[in-house]
Write a protein that binds this DNA or RNA. Structure first.
Lengths: 152, 152
DNA sequence: TTTCTAAAGGACCAAGCTGTCCCCTTTACT
DNA sequence: AGTAAAGGGGACAGCTTGGTCCTTTAGAAA
């Protein structure tokens, strides 16, 4: 559905949102989200360039959400890493999105549209667990690298 | 949404379905679907192993749908190439699909479930254009390699 | 000003996916 | 039999992604 990279980004954003006043370092975020440390810093860079997080160097620095969590949609985060590919253009088709896709591509686009809509309608604050049994810790108990421990 | 490979597979299946009595060679299918010739034959092999198409070697051979188009779902075709990844297991989570995903993964799984359902409910015959202006020719005018002519 | 800390960023590696090529096997037709 | 037409399948090239590592830059506090 979404790439590992986008998942890491989402996990990091949610983690930041769970304690908005505290800056978190890439290392802390990597621990909290189960993402590889070195890779996560790249992910955070991307989020920074996209304006979703602000970063502060030096002692006591780290990352913060650039906006309150209720003003950030899942879609925004995902699209930093992978544009949701709609099929407006019949692949090789006419200029612009001519109104007649073939049935196959219409269905494929419908599916993409559903996902896009779902992501657009969900804001980050809706993803916070208000369950105080796991305060400000990743709710799914340290997920680990994406797709990691399925084999176990 | 789906990989180029899965798209090629779908296009080929739909093309076969548009004239179920005629065997089509990989070359013909490649032309009709705009897929690279050499690659499509790999795709067709996969569809064959999955039991969705039957193949016949030698002169006059080619590929045919193994089942009538109304008994083949889009999901079946897509899953030959890429399993729709549901998130039943909290990545690293408890054994089995414990009933409590964190809100993030619940949302992600919801999206995957929507897509899966949409694909499962659509059969190949629903994708045939009954528009006789383009009889048994790819409706989107020779799509070309996936993602091809967007730059143009 | 120095020093410590943390992000920024580049170099690099491994794996997977897309795609090409070429040869082998099977089949039908003459 | 022989030959041409078709799929089967392996080898391999190129690109993108995921991931590691190391150096550079910037900020804060002593």
């Amino acid at each position: 559905m979404i790439s590992p990279t986008a998942e890491y980004g989402l996990r990091a954003i949610v983690t930041l949102a769970s304690d908005p006043d505290k800056a978190m370092t890439a290392t802390q975020l990597a621990e909290a989200t189960g993402a590889p440390q070195g890779y996560l810093s790249k992910v955070m860079q991307s989020l920074g360039k996209a304006g979703l997080v602000s970063s502060q160097r030096g002692v006591g620095g780290g990352f913060r959400l650039a906006r309150p969590a209720n003003l950030v949609s899942v879609l925004e985060v995902v699209e930093v890493f992978e544009p949701v590919k709609r099929v407006l253009r019949c692949p090789l088709g006419r200029p612009e999105h001519s109104p007649d896709l073939c049935p196959l591509h219409q269905r494929l686009d419908d599916a993409a549209a559903m996902v896009e809509r779902s992501f657009a309608e969900t804001t980050i604050d809706e993803l916070l667990s208000h369950d105080e049994r796991h305060p400000r810790v990743w709710t799914c108990q340290n997920p680990g690298p994406v797709g990691g421990p399925d084999k176990a």
